[in-house]
């Protein structure tokens, strides 16, 4: 389409990508309702931006991103389709733009998948940096890395607006399939390292069975995390009050005198 528009779109993508993380919580500023009018304003057609933003919001409303994985990126989708509708114009441009938003979504998510293991591999570096106890340095490096994280998306938006999305799709198809499979497999296994570190801190032999109980509740019974939390709280509270009673009974007996402590109380204590 045009280089100027491509630069403007890439800049909007970069700004929104960063701002969505730093302002007003999450998934607010990068929604089509906000990005649509913004792109419209930048390209000089606010009205198309508003109308397209409304239609796109309705499309992306059902596509939720709960749990960290985003099935289709609404930010890039909105930018590409609104730009297309404004720059091409004429009858049917809006419909064509809407259709484009889905294809850019798949390109974007393939590229993002490619980079997922790279950002995940930074985790040990962050750990080491945090242990240096320099919060300002930690903060600045985080923001810098965020800006770099956005770069693949910025480049895709730029190329997509400047030269069309078909070329990108073709380039992506040329990449051997196993590279994509391997990278996405790595991404889905990385979380195990985080859980491993977390578990190593709270694991103890006498209560570790509850790890498996939680797993089975979620996997086999299909309970939601809230449901499992209620059951877990019930177990934890019961144990808490049980042990509390044992401790207070022991204390009151100790107050009466060691001679009056009956045998069973001790064995009960050993049992827990």
């Amino acid at each position: 389409m045009s280089i100027t528009a491509a630069i403007a779109c890439a800049a909007v993508y970069w700004c929104i990508y960063m701002l969505d993380q730093y302002l007003l919580s999450w998934q607010c500023l990068n929604r089509p309702l906000v990005v649509g009018p913004l792109i419209g304003f930048v390209l000089g057609d606010l009205n198309t931006g508003l109308v397209m933003g409304a239609s796109l919001e309705a499309v992306f409303m059902g596509i939720s991103a709960i749990g960290g994985s985003i099935p289709s990126d609404c930010l890039s989708g909105t930018i590409i389709s609104v730009t297309y509708a404004i720059l091409v114009g004429g009858d049917g441009a809006m419909e064509a733009g809407l259709a484009l938003s889905l294809s850019i979504g798949t390109v974007m998510s393939s590229i993002t998948n490619m980079f997922t293991p790279v950002w995940a591999a930074l985790a040990p570096y962050w750990e080491k940096l945090a242990a240096e106890c320099k919060p300002r340095k930690f903060l600045i490096q985080n923001i810098l890395v965020d800006a770099v994280t956005a770069l693949p998306g910025v480049i895709i938006i730029f190329l997509g607006v400047a030269f069309g999305i078909e070329g990108l799709q073709a380039g992506l198809d040329a990449c051997p399939a196993w590279v994509m499979t391997g990278l996405s497999a790595a991404g889905s296994m990385m979380t195990a390292v985080g859980f491993g570190i977390l578990l190593s801190m709270i694991w103890s032999a006498d209560i570790c069975i509850f790890f498996f109980v939680g797993f089975i509740f979620a996997k086999s019974l299909g309970l939601s995390s809230l449901g499992i939390a209620v059951i877990g709280t019930a177990i934890a509270l019961t144990l808490f009050f049980l042990e509390k009673n044992i401790i207070s009974a022991k204390n009151s007996m100790a107050a009466v005198g060691p001679a009056s402590v009956p045998g069973p109380a001790n064995s009960e204590e050993d049992f827990f």
Partner: peptide, 25 residues
């Protein structure tokens, strides 16, 4: 006692999250 109870709940929740987020494809 409170630490132990919290650990039990914590272990259960990590177990549940393992089921939903870790995947060996």
């Amino acid at each position: 006692v409170a630490t132990r109870s919290a650990s039990i709940l914590g272990l259960m929740m990590v177990g549940a999250m393992t089921a939903t987020t870790v995947n060996v494809p």
